[in-house]
Write a protein that binds this DNA or RNA. Sequence first.
RNA 1: GGUGGAGUCGCCUAGUGGCCGAGGGCGCACGCCUCGAAAGCGUGUGAGGGGGCAACCCCUCCGUGGGUUCAAAUCCCACCUCCACCGCCA
Length: 420
Amino acid sequence: MLDRRFIRENPQAVKDAVRVKGIGLDVDELLSLDQASRDLQRELDDAQARRRSFAREFARADEETRIRLRAEHEEQDAHLKEVREELAEVSEKLQALMLQTPTIPWEGSPVGADDTANVTIRTWGQAPAFGFEPKDHVELLENRGWAEFARARKVAGERAYALVGEMVMLERALLTYALDHLIEVGSTVISVPVLVREEPLTGTGQFPAHREETYAITADDLYLAGTAEVALTGLHSGEILDLRQLPIRYAGISPCFRREAGSAGRDVRGLLRVHQFEKVEQWVMCAADDAESDRWHFEILGAAEHLLQALGLHYEVVECATGDMGAGKYRMNDINTWFPSLGKFRETHSCSSLHDWQARRANLRYRDADGSVKFAFTLNNTAIATPRLLAALVENYQTADGKVTVPEVLRPYLGGRAQL
RNA sequence: GGUGGAGUCGCCUAGUGGCCGAGGGCGCACGCCUCGAAAGCGUGUGAGGGGGCAACCCCUCCGUGGGUUCAAAUCCCACCUCCACCGCCA
């Protein structure tokens, strides 16, 4: 969400952002609603001021005057009610449009409608050379009894899976390794609620645009969050933090739930696109400063790259196109990891700077050095999302005889074993 | 799930329909005092919105949302959160 004053003063910048991000928002309508809302607000303020002084007069008046005042009150109340209703109607429409306003994207982001316009800015490592025909992760896991797909789908429907035996331990190892590294670089580890209210989902930007992608528990008016980011952003909602409390750097761990409503039939095989997965998420709230936000962007992007490098996985970092990054993002870099079975990179991480867009929605504020209250900047990035990354790991580290070599950094978490 | 109690400014609290247009204390900031400090004294001390070139003015907010009333922190209803006890339970 943008600042109303900013939209008023920079309508063209907002229109440009709406266009390059492919958002169906009528900025002129928003501007006229903004004007109408301010006019009505002024009218209401004046009318209320008058009404209040009349009520005080009433308290001091004699019986005769009271009869006269009562009649005037009725007139005033009718007018007040009318203005209030009109303002409520305008405000509701305005708010609906405000929630669609995009962050102005970084000028370096490639302009394009979708991820086909994303630009690779670097690659690390290389694809493993197998002296044999590599198997995909489904075959690898089934051959070793490391996963149940058919039985899991009997229980939970399409895209369900169950990891078995050593695969469970390997997944745990990945997550624990990520947490250990993030602690080392100064993050506060936090396990967050996943069953959440509507407000934090609106706060992060999941709602209203992506409501269909979220599971709803209608009996209790709760939802299953698709990422720890939802709770992390909600944690400090409504607070005014002291500048000294910033930056806040969290490593949130949680299960994640996604309906995948927009991708029916895609990637139904295996572990690449599932309804339920585990993720360690990096999240940062910092002062409202472009340079500091940029610094954190590269810090948390670097942390994710560090993990992949330590795991020895071949990856590329892409600069995401304006149409791929979503309304709230100033800048987004995805990391795509190499999948031998696909013969290509596949998204495993997504690093986003949102400037104050989320902070405005979620009401994340701090008191600056000069005493003024400001909306903070937020950023987030995946650290490890599994089982997608687990699938990449297994495919990249498979041996000719169907075993999996354990990357050295994970061995301490698996009793020192070098191979599974 | 049930019963009872509670939610007021950063913190503690006063407040049972008009004197609340929210008082006091703590904390914090500034000033006086002092060689300097502490103590003491004085002044100030929230958020959001609107208007004005400006000094400044106005409106909203006492957990949230409704309602009653000329008038609500105060009365009524629903919800949220916390505390206590009962029930159930990993």
